[in-house]
Every structure is written in structure tokens, then in C-alpha cells.
Simulated scan of single mutants.
Amino acid sequence: MTSSPALPARQIYDASKGGDPGKLILQDGGTTQDGPANNVYENLGIVAGFFQEQFGRQSYDGKNATLKARVHTGPGGNAYWDGLRFNFADGDASKVGDPTAVLDVVGHMYTEAVIQTTAGLELNGQSGALLMSIADVFGVLAKQKHLGQTAEKADWLVGVGLFKDKPDTGLRSIKEPSLYKHPAHMSSYVETYSDNGGVHTNCGIPSRAFYLLATDLGGQAWEAAGKIWYTALTRYASRDTDFEGFAQATAAAAKQLFGDDHVSKVTAAWKSVGVSIG
């Protein structure tokens, strides 16, 4: 019996200690009393393990890159991937909690790094909305896998626990984007110059398509539906892929992996959000 490959190395830095990236306070084999550092170390391991186990991807770049993160980057709930490291703020005293403690937020950031090293989707317009959607999807899938949830039982919310004053809500919904006033169909697509062309708003459209496919297939969403989306991202998508292009990519991935029956289900999911596969 062969053992699973080890998780990629992790290094956590305290950005408040000065310099760039800050002071190294936690790495493999070490300990710290810093709560956010422990949170992000653990959650990065969970997400990296998810990608490794489900898709055979060793670290975000597929080449076992060390996972580097910075905590204490400032007040507020900001979390972002800067092309080199995962960065996490501290929350605030009243409304925003610690983003390092929210598994799907960490998963979203990790997936952004995966996207950068695969399709490289441009953060603008439809390609940018796809980037945000795919990062949401895989962040939530990592959470569902960790909790042992089926597609039918999961809440499909992104960022639950981030807001102290609204503990049961989140940032976005993959199941019902309209809960956060985001469109779930191309007929409501938001044309705007702000937010890089509405990337955090229009992401609800492809996210809803994933939800519809996952629940149509049933069971555990990271299995068939997740593999279709991952294959579409890593083999068929490119920097300027738009919604229609990614729909075509998922259809191609479905045929490659599972055959025509899954292609028809993929096509139906995209059609339900107003995206046709030519």
C-alpha cells in the first residue's frame, strides 16, 4: 500500500512585525500562540489536502510550492492572494471576524492561486467573474468535504462566520445569488465599470450553474461536478475565457471524464442561467 504524498510546506509570517513579508512565526514542526497563524496553517493544510486528494494537485502550482501566508496585515476582513502569498487581516472589534478562521475564505484564496498557475483568468469582466466564482466554488467544496456534506445538505454559502453581527450569513451564495442581490441569470447581468466590471457581483451566474449541476448529479459535489469544473479550468480555459467559453469547457471536460449523459446535464445547468453552449 502506497502512502499519500505529504502536504506542501507551510510558512506563516506576522506582517505586523515589520519588513516584508514580516516575521516568520510558524512553520512545519513549530508552534505558536498566535491564533490566526494557527488557523491559517491548519486551513491551508485542509484545502491543499483537498486538492491533492481529489484532483492530484500537489500545492497550488502543481509543483509542491511552499504555502506562504501573512497574518495581521491590518484591521478589517480583507483576505487576498498577492501572487506570492496569502494575506489575512485581523477583523475588527464589532462587525468583522477573523478571516483565517473561515475555511472557505481560505479555500477561495488558495483557489485563486490555482487559477493563476493554470488558466490565469484575467480579473476583469466575465473572465474576472469566472475567477471569483471558481474560487468560491472550490472554497465551498473544500468545506463540504471537510464537513462530510452532500450537495443536498450543504448551505452553499461563502464566508459564513465572517460577520460577528450576522453569524448565519456570509458574503455570497452559490445556491441563491439573489440573497446578496447578485444576478443568477444572464438576463440580470450587471454592466458596470466598478469592481473590475462587476466581478464580485456577476460571479453568481456561473456559481449558480455549478450548484444546479451538482444537485442534479447528487451525492458529493466535489466528485463528478467538482472534477468537471477542475478539468475545465486546468485543461480547457485560458486568460480571457468568458461564461460561454467556460460553459463549452465544462461540456468538453464532462465528455472527457464521464460521457454524453453528463454533457447533457452540464448543458442544462448553463441553459438555466441563460448561457448557451454552441
Rank of each mutant, 00 (worst) to 15 (best):
G159A: 15
M109N: 05
A79R: 00
D165F: 06
H146I: 07
A135F: 13
A89Q: 15
Q149A: 01
W81I: 15
G161C: 06
K153V: 09
R57C: 13
G128Y: 06
F51V: 04
D104F: 02
A119L: 08
G76E: 00
K166L: 08
P99A: 05
G97Q: 00
G97A: 08
V114A: 07
E53K: 05
D168T: 14
G170T: 01
L123A: 08
G148T: 12
V158N: 11
R85C: 11
T118D: 08
N78A: 13
D155C: 13
Q58E: 12
F138M: 06
E152F: 03
P75R: 04
G49W: 00
D98C: 01
T100R: 02
D98E: 06
R57T: 13
Y80S: 12
Y60C: 12
L103Q: 00
A79Q: 03
I134Y: 01
F163E: 13
K95L: 05
R85I: 03
D104P: 02
E152G: 06
N124K: 04
K166W: 03
G159D: 11
G125H: 04
D155I: 00
L130Y: 09
F88G: 11
G97F: 00
Q149V: 01
G76D: 04
M109G: 13
A129N: 09
T169V: 03
V106M: 10
D104G: 01
F138H: 07
F86D: 01
W81S: 14
A154Y: 06
A93G: 07
A89P: 07
A151P: 02
D90N: 14
L103S: 05
A93C: 07
A79F: 12
G128S: 05
W81T: 12
K145T: 10
A113R: 09
T111R: 10
D82T: 14
D104V: 09
G125T: 02
A69I: 10
K164Y: 09
V96A: 02
I115M: 04
G139Q: 08
L131Q: 06
A89W: 11
A154K: 09
Q144H: 10
E112Q: 14
T66Q: 09
G170H: 05
K95Q: 11
H146R: 14
L67I: 15
Q149R: 14
R57Q: 14
A154M: 10
D155F: 00
E112I: 11
L162C: 04
T73A: 13
G125L: 01
V102T: 07
T100Y: 05
Q52G: 00
G83W: 01
T111A: 13
D92C: 06
A113K: 13
N87T: 07
D92L: 03
R85K: 14
T66L: 05
N124V: 02
K164L: 14
R57N: 14
D155S: 04
A154E: 14
